[in-house]
Amino acid sequence: MVTSRYGFTVINTHAATPWIFYEHSTCVAPHGYRLITPLTGEDAYYALAVKTKDADTLITALEQAGLKVKTFADDQPF
């Protein structure tokens, strides 16, 4: 069980991970980075903090490699 700093309780880490990634994406954005999460199909989560200017190139490469990519845009829920 994980309790966040916002006071709500998350029962499993699979539910907490997207929230943690979203939190981190809002922290790195003001510093010129974008958080990208390639979905590999494994029971694991990965996140890459990349320079904003390089993000689109990396997203394209990951998609061409057959991976789904989450970027935490407002129109793209995890």
Rank of each mutant, 00 (worst) to 15 (best):
A49I: 09
F72P: 12
T9Q: 09
P18C: 04
P77Q: 03
I20D: 05
I11M: 15
A29V: 09
V2T: 10
G32Y: 00
I11K: 12
Y46S: 01
E63R: 03
Y45Q: 13
Q64P: 05
T9N: 10
H24C: 14
L35W: 04
P38A: 10
V10K: 00
T13E: 10
G32R: 02
A47L: 08
A47W: 07
L67N: 01
Y33E: 10
E42V: 06
P30E: 01
Y33S: 07
D56S: 07
F78Y: 14
T52P: 03
L39N: 06
Y6V: 12
I11D: 13
F72C: 12
D74Q: 14
A73W: 12
S25F: 06
Y45L: 12
A47Y: 10
D56L: 03
Y22D: 15
G7K: 04
D54M: 13
T52G: 05
I11P: 05
F8K: 10
L67M: 05
P77S: 01
Q64F: 02
G7T: 04
P18G: 02
K51E: 10
I11T: 11
P38C: 07
H31M: 14
S25P: 01
V69P: 05
K70S: 04
T60K: 04
Y46A: 03
I36E: 05
D56Q: 06
T17R: 06
I36K: 00
D56M: 08
L39C: 08
L67Y: 03
L62F: 00
K53Q: 11
L62W: 01
C27I: 14
H31D: 15
P18D: 00
A16E: 02
I59Q: 04
L58Y: 05
C27R: 14
K68D: 08
G66Q: 02
V69K: 01
A55K: 01
